[in-house]
Each structure stands twice: as C-alpha cells, then as structure tokens.
C-alpha cells in the first residue's frame, strides 16, 4: 500500500474528529476527503476506516456504491456529457461516442496524458441547450459531433498554457 503523506493523514484524522469519529458520518467524511484530496485511494479509505472504527470493507463498500466517489485521480478537465433524457433525445449519445473515440477512453476513464476525464451526468437543467457538455463551470450547449474536436483542442491548449 502506498503511503499517505503526513499532511494528508493529519487532515483525515482531523476531518474524522470534526465528525465526532461517528461512523454514521462516513459519507460526509468521504465527501470532504474527496474534495480535499481529489480522490479516495485505498490508503485514504484505510485511514478513515481506522478513525471511524469500522472495517475497511465497509468504507470500500460505500465508496464503490456511490458513483460520486472515485478511487482514481481525475484529469485536469472533467468533460461531462449530459445524459439526461432531454439531451439524450437530442443526440447526446453521438456526442459521447465522439468524445470516447477521440479521447480513447471509456466513461469514467482519464486520458493517458492526464488532461481529460470523461464522464456523464444526468440533467444539469439546461434542457433548452440540449445536448449539453460541461467542462468545469463552463457549459457548451447545442453541441454537435463536429464540435467535439474543437472543444478538445481548446482545452488541450489551455492545459499547455497551464503547464
């Protein structure tokens, strides 16, 4: 098991303490841990289990049950394709296919260069703009398969600027 940095461990210990080391607060703890650390690797779950005095298996069972939690780090940009019904009937599946094809990842996967994570979400409520793709706080509306390459290129450029 990879070791956790002392800071992260301390953070987790404090976090659990904030929730009175109450096992019923597990989901709240996991939310905050993921907010802070980006993801919930094995060693993070193990520390949380220890602090809340519950088996590792219980934490792992919860993490793998809820789609919001992830055990792998996400890319710099999280590309979310809305798969809500309104977007679906306006062709979001074609958009998703095109992203999958171009990024060479499955839904939930992160590109090898660590720039993109491809995910789906359900209804951001911008149904009038369907189909919708959101990247961070930016929302792209009325997306066509043709625009996919442009969107990717735009963010590859951004990633390079950040570098």
């Amino acid at each position: 098991m990879a070791t956790l940095s002392e800071n992260s461990r301390k953070f987790l210990v404090e976090l659990c303490k904030k929730y009175r080391n109450d096992e019923h607060e597990l989901i709240n703890v996991l939310h905050e841990a993921q907010d802070e650390l980006g993801y919930l690797p094995v060693e993070v779950q193990h520390v949380i289990a220890g602090e809340l005095n519950i088996p590792d298996a219980r934490v792992y069972g919860v993490v793998t049950f809820y789609s919001f939690f992830t055990m792998v780090p996400k890319g710099k940009f999280d590309i979310s394709i809305c798969m809500g019904t309104a977007c679906y009937v306006k062709g979001s599946e074609l958009i998703l296919d095109e992203f999958k094809r171009r990024l060479k990842v499955k839904v939930g996967g992160t590109t090898e260069d660590g720039i993109f994570t491809l995910s789906t979400l359900r209804c951001v409520g911008a149904c009038s703009l369907a189909p919708v793709v959101s990247i961070g706080s930016k929302v792209f509306g009325n997306v066509t398969p043709l625009q996919v390459k442009k969107i990717i290129d735009e963010y590859v450029e951004k990633a390079e600027e950040l570098h």
Binding site: E25, I27, N28, H31, R58, V62, Y66, S67, F68, F69
Partner: peptide
C-alpha cells in the same frame, strides 16, 4: 449529502445512506 445513487430516492435506501451505509 447524497453521493450519486438514484435508488436513494427510495426512502429506506435514503435512510441507510444518511446513516453512512
């Protein structure tokens, strides 16, 4: 907070989820 599980709209599932399960 929910964590991305539609089934938690069912009240017993919701309660288990609130209990950290």
């Amino acid at each position: 907070y929910g964590a991305g599980a539609f089934v938690c709209g069912e009240e017993t599932a919701l309660i288990h989820s609130m209990e950290g399960m």
